[in-house]
Design a protein around this nucleic acid. Structure first.
Length: 423
RNA sequence: GGAGGGUUCGCCUAGUGGCCGAUGGCGGUGGUCUUGAAAACCACUAAGGCAGCGAUGUCUUCAAGGGUUCGAAUCCCUUACCCUCCGCCA
């Protein structure tokens, strides 16, 4: 939800942002009009309501003719107040609709354009070269780590079992991420993965993402696609104390995505699935500090990828591909040898005050005033990283090397060997 | 699933139609006192919208929505959530 004060004071910035995203510029003017309309509706309601209260005070003392006259006037007034109130509600509704039509103002420096207009900030690590690389699924099956066939049998396409060392590997990876965050001062969290409509809505996932979200109609609950949802809603309607700096959470959860509209894309293996696990960083901070905090989240993501000894690159996502809440987004993409391409493994967004405004999450600034907080999120560890891990660390015999930092989290194993017999 | 009880300003609590934006306590902040602290005492102590350079003014908010009334925290209806008991299942 966009800041109306900014809009009034500097509509041109908002227009420029809309242009950069390839979104409608007219909707900025629609919002300006709706804002004006609401304010005038409120003013007339308040004038009437004020009069009503004044006259109401006289009532108990009034007697006789005086009282009769007063009653006549207040009776009319009651109807007028009611009509004015209805007008305010209507204007507020219209304002909200217009407000939701505008995405967050893009941060200075973010590239314009759409999905393919990202800017590569850096490439890190040496991309491994193989003669005949096995893809992650072939490796996973060889190791007895991934079973997509039975996943499909039991639950359908895009479901899978992590088996044996696969299960250990996934848990180890997530734990490694979680511990890194704990050492950095994050509060680890295991949030609910079923949330109420208002929580889903508040975090902005029922907008353009609505088709992506699983809904349980019997209970009117939603399955979260990321723990960003319960972590963002955690402090809904609260005033935080951020005097000591950003408040950071690391949420471990399963994530559920319908993957509607992605038919035929990444159908092999576990790259694009309906359910996976993730440790997500989430930070509440002073908006003045948000851009810096964003770089810190990115640095933590890169620290993880470094410890996993993965070759990756960092991209600055273009405005048109940001999603409505983000003002800036950096993705880390790991190299996928068998596909000769990079694949997104982490994504960190600076939502500035956009998300927190809708959720009414504020903090008290140095002057003691309440201000909307900024929220940021970023991926620390996720099932999908295993895809890159298996492929990049594979050896000719089908075994997979375990990076040193991960070894303590998988029972000290340094190499995962192919299973003796298939089953 | 059945039967009751509840939801008030950070927490607890008073409040059964106008004097209630709302009592009191706790907590918090500032001050007096003290070598320092504690105690005691005093003061302040919700959020938001709008107007104004500002002091300030004004309106909204007593779970949410609707109704009764000139006037609602207070009366009526609906919904949500919480609690207790019973049943059922782990």
């Amino acid at each position: 939800m966009i800041d109306l004060r900014l809009l009034r004071e500097d509509p041109e910035t908002v227009r420029a942002s809309q242009r950069l995203r390839g979104d409608s510029v007219d909707s900025v003017d629609d919002l300006l009009r709706a804002d004006e309309a609401r304010r005038s509706a409120v003013a007339s309601f308040e004038a009437l309501r004020g009069e009503q209260k004044q006259l109401g005070k006289l009532m108990p003392k009034a007697t006789g003719d005086e009282k009769t006259a007063l009653l006549a006037r207040t009776k009319d007034l009651a109807a007028e107040v009611k009509a004015a109130e209805a007008a305010v509600n209507e204007a507020e509704q219209a304002l909200r609709t217009a407000q939701f039509a505008i995405a967050n103002v893009v941060q200075d420096g973010a590239p314009g354009g759409g999905e393919d207009d990202y800017v590569v900030l850096r490439e890190v690590g040496d991309r491994p070269v193989f003669d005949n690389p096995r893809d992650h699924l072939a490796l996973g099956e060889l190791l007895g780590a991934i079973d997509t066939e039975r996943g499909a049998k039991v639950s359908g396409a895009r479901f899978y079992y992590m088996t044996g060392v696969g299960a250990l590997l996934q848990l180890g990876l997530l734990q490694m991420g979680l511990w890194q965050s704990v050492e950095a001062g994050f509060t680890p969290m295991i949030p609910p993965v079923l949330v109420k409509p208002e929580s889903m809505e508040g975090t902005g996932f029922l907008g353009s993402h609505a088709a992506e979200v699983y809904h349980l109609p019997a209970d009117d609950l939603y399955l979260v696609g990321t723990s960003e949802v319960p972590l963002a809603a955690y402090h809904k309607d609260e005033i935080l104390n951020l005097a000591a700096g950003p408040q950071r959470y690391a949420g471990w959860s399963s994530c559920f995505r319908r993957e509607a509209g992605s038919y035929g894309k990444d159908t092999r293996g576990i790259i694009r699935v309906h359910q996976f696990d993730k440790v997500e960083m989430f930070s509440y901070c002073d908006p003045a500090e948000a851009a810096e905090e964003h770089l810190r989240l990115l640095a933590w993501e890169e620290e993880m990828l470094g410890k996993l000894e993965l070759a990756y690159r960092v991209i600055d996502v273009a405005a048109g591909d940001l999603g409505s809440s983000a003002a800036r987004k950096f993705d880390c993409e790991a190299w996928l040898p068998t596909q000769n391409r990079y694949m997104e493994v982490t994504s960190t967004s600076n939502c500035t005050t956009f998300q927190a405004r809708r959720l009414n999450t504020r903090f008290r600034d140095a002057d003691g005033r309440t201000q909307t907080a900024a929220t940021l999120n970023g991926t620390l560890a996720t099932t999908r990283m295993l895809v890159a891990l298996l492929e990049q660390h594979q050896q000719p015999d089908g075994s997979v090397r375990v990076p040193k930092a991960l070894q303590p989290f998988v029972g000290g194993r340094d190499v995962l060997e192919p299973a003796k017999a298939g089953s």
